[in-house]
């Protein structure tokens, strides 16, 4: 610690309006110097692109030649594009499977680990480690493990007498396999966050419920879970946003195949913009996705607001 100056608590300035104003002005200049890098990067590479994207979505653009204005044509085309429909469907299936499963399993693991059990730290580490590994590395690893010919998974199945599976090369399995891989890497996050939240559940409440004769399940239902609601809502929002934006894993493992069975929305956007060079069309699809994300966020905010009101009322009375 640096040596602190003697604690004066005088108001900052009393030396007259002139110096005060000068100091204010200098302060504002310093403040602008402090924030300008952040403002430049964030506004330049975020606000500007958001507007630009909107304009692009009304244009035909190939990233090279000047673009042409087409109005709502891109959006109309999206509505009729079977590939886009499939991408939306795949993304929804993926999200609906992944989000509740990861939260439920994460919660169950956290509840078990929250009992005074030995090696909690070791278990927590093991469940959480896959989370820090990049989607690329996960994808490459599982492409190998699940390789129909050379993979360990089929080797194990063979030893158990089960016929070899296609996994990522089978159109009816690929999306489910992707969900499983993401569960492997994403459940630990839920566990760790729930574990931290469980530490904050008021022990006095738990004790009181116990004294009133609440069993384990009643305790869980009426004390623990309600106390965890804010965290659950956060995880629901966070995991949904992550799931709707899945891309890296798909690019590395299946490239949207086989037969488009794993083409998700972001993969569709990337393909349109940077492979087919129809950037305006891609931008329109990106806007549809952004709108969906926005709706999810607003819905959850409403739910959360409704959750919060009764409790504060109860606390006040």
């Amino acid at each position: 610690m640096p040596r602190l100056p003697t604690p004066l608590t005088l108001p900052p300035d009393r030396s007259g309006p002139h110096t005060l104003r000068r100091r204010r002005r200098r302060e504002a200049a310093t403040a602008w110097a402090f924030i300008s890098p952040a403002v430049l990067v964030i506004l330049g590479l975020s606000i500007l692109p958001v507007v630009w994207s909107l304009l692009l979505s009304f244009q035909v653009n190939d990233l090279v030649t000047p673009s042409r204005w087409v109005g709502l044509d891109n959006y109309r085309a999206l509505r009729q594009d079977p590939n886009f429909h499939q991408a939306v469907e795949n993304t929804v299936v993926y999200t609906v499977l992944y989000v509740p499963l990861s939260i439920a399993v994460g919660l169950a693991l956290a509840l078990v680990l929250n009992r005074r059990i030995r090696f909690v730290g070791l278990y927590r580490t093991l469940f959480f480690v896959p989370f820090v590994i990049s989607a690329t590395a996960q994808g490459v690893l599982f492409s190998f493990i699940l390789d129909p010919e050379f993979g360990a998974a089929n080797s194990v199945l063979h030893r158990l007498g089960i016929s070899p599976q296609g996994f990522l090369t089978d159109p009816s399995q690929a999306l489910l396999v992707l969900v499983a891989i993401t569960l492997w890497s994403g459940t630990g996050l839920c566990t760790v966050i729930y574990l931290a939240a469980l530490q904050d559940v008021q022990q006095s409440l738990v004790e009181a419920a116990r004294l009133d004769g609440a069993g384990r399940l009643q305790l869980l239902r009426h004390v623990t879970l309600p106390a965890l609601t804010p965290v659950s809502v956060f995880l629901l929002l966070w995991q949904t946003i992550q799931a709707l934006q899945v891309f890296d894993l798909v690019y590395v493992t299946t490239k949207g195949g086989p037969l488009g069975s794993t083409t998700v929305i972001v993969y569709f956007i990337w393909e349109q913009a940077f492979k087919e060079f129809t950037a305006g069309y891609g931008a329109a699809a990106a806007y549809v996705l952004a709108l969906a994300l926005f709706v999810v966020a607003v819905l959850l905010r409403v739910v959360r607001g409704r959750e919060r009101t009764p409790r504060t009322k109860a606390a006040a009375s």
């Binding site: 692109p49 630009w52 934006q245 956007i269 990106a286 996705l289």
Partner: peptide, 17 residues
Amino acid sequence: ATMAVPFQLTMIPTFLV
């Protein structure tokens, strides 16, 4: 507000920038 903007929305213009 920019924290809520998904990257997919900005990636095409960011490429152009």
